[in-house]
């Protein structure tokens, strides 16, 4: 009884700020406003299936996918290094790794502008060696860089927390049984770390696929991503119905990817959303 009483504010909070808004978004997505009032329709979803919007959707997923893969490739070794070092050095490393995150996300992205622009820091240094200024800013690579830079910690930290809990004796047992380092990694360490990898992937993919600040600042708004499209429907066009439809499709995609990921997470204590 007591526990239920404690949970009341949380339930009220979730109803007010999650359930009701979700229902509203869903309601908007299946209606349009006409002169006669509100009518139910699937027009918004049909509009989204036009090639031009599919292209936008595809580009967003592609960029988010690539940045997730890069984050994984860069993040996994980092997590292993963190998990492998002794406590004293570990704390310093984690501090150095996390400290930039204390700064505002926008500021960190703005900082990249200063580094990458034509008369920016990197090009100025290059010019000292007689290298002509490179076009580093305002392209897909700059957008990818921005995503990887901003989301990398979300990949490293979950993997690290799983790896640091792996029982050392399991690895020793594998070594005693004659496995070399490579075998130990592929047969023992990596499979044990899968829950961390899975939550790392979801935590990077989700913000990456919906970001609209990074493509605007580092991509020079040259490429509309799905996040930009949604933002514009609400702020500029005032077509809340179409904006909601895109959001719903986005949510379904994320739900599916989380569903796939949670298959790996279920074996872990605490499970995923579908566990």
């Amino acid at each position: 009884m007591k526990i239920r009483w404690i949970s009341t504010p949380y339930i009220v909070w979730m109803i007010m700020f999650t359930v009701v808004p979700l229902l509203l978004v869903f309601f908007f997505s299946i209606t349009v406003q006409t002169d006669e009032g509100i009518t139910f329709t699937l027009e918004n979803f049909k509009k989204l299936s036009e090639p031009i919007y599919l292209k936008v959707l595809w580009r967003s997923i592609y960029l988010a996918f690539v940045s997730t893969v890069i984050c994984l490739l860069l993040g996994y070794p980092m997590a292993m290094i963190l998990a492998g070092t002794d406590v004293k050095r570990k704390n310093v490393l984690i501090f150095l790794f996390v400290a930039p995150m204390w700064m505002n996300f926008l500021l960190r992205t703005y900082a990249w502008l200063t580094l990458l622009e034509k008369n920016g820091l990197i090009n100025t240094v290059l010019s000292l060696f007689g290298i002509k200024p490179l076009n580093l800013l305002y392209n897909n690579l700059a957008v990818l860089l921005g995503m990887v830079y901003n989301f990398l910690p979300f990949m490293v930290l979950p993997i690290y927390s799983v790896l640091s809990k792996v029982d050392k004796s399991v690895i020793e047992a594998a070594q005693d049984l004659g496995a070399n380092n490579f075998k130990v990694f592929t047969k023992v360490t990596f499979p044990l770390s899968l829950p961390g990898v899975a939550s790392g992937i979801t935590m990077v993919f989700m913000p990456a696929v919906t970001t609209f600040v990074v493509p605007r600042l580092l991509g020079g708004a040259q490429f509309t991503l799905i996040g930009n499209l949604i933002e514009r429907q609400f702020v500029l066009v005032g077509d809340w119905n179409f904006g909601s439809a895109i959001s719903i499709v986005m949510m379904i995609l994320i739900l599916i990817s989380m569903g796939i990921m949670s298959r790996y997470e279920t074996e872990h204590v605490g499970g995923g959303f579908f566990g």
């Binding site: 031009i52 919007y53 292209k55 936008v56 580009r59 708004a221 040259q222 490429f223 509309t224 930009n228 499209l229 514009r232």
Partner: peptide
Amino acid sequence: EIWTRITA
């Protein structure tokens, strides 16, 4: 729509 076509 025009803007989406340009930036897509």
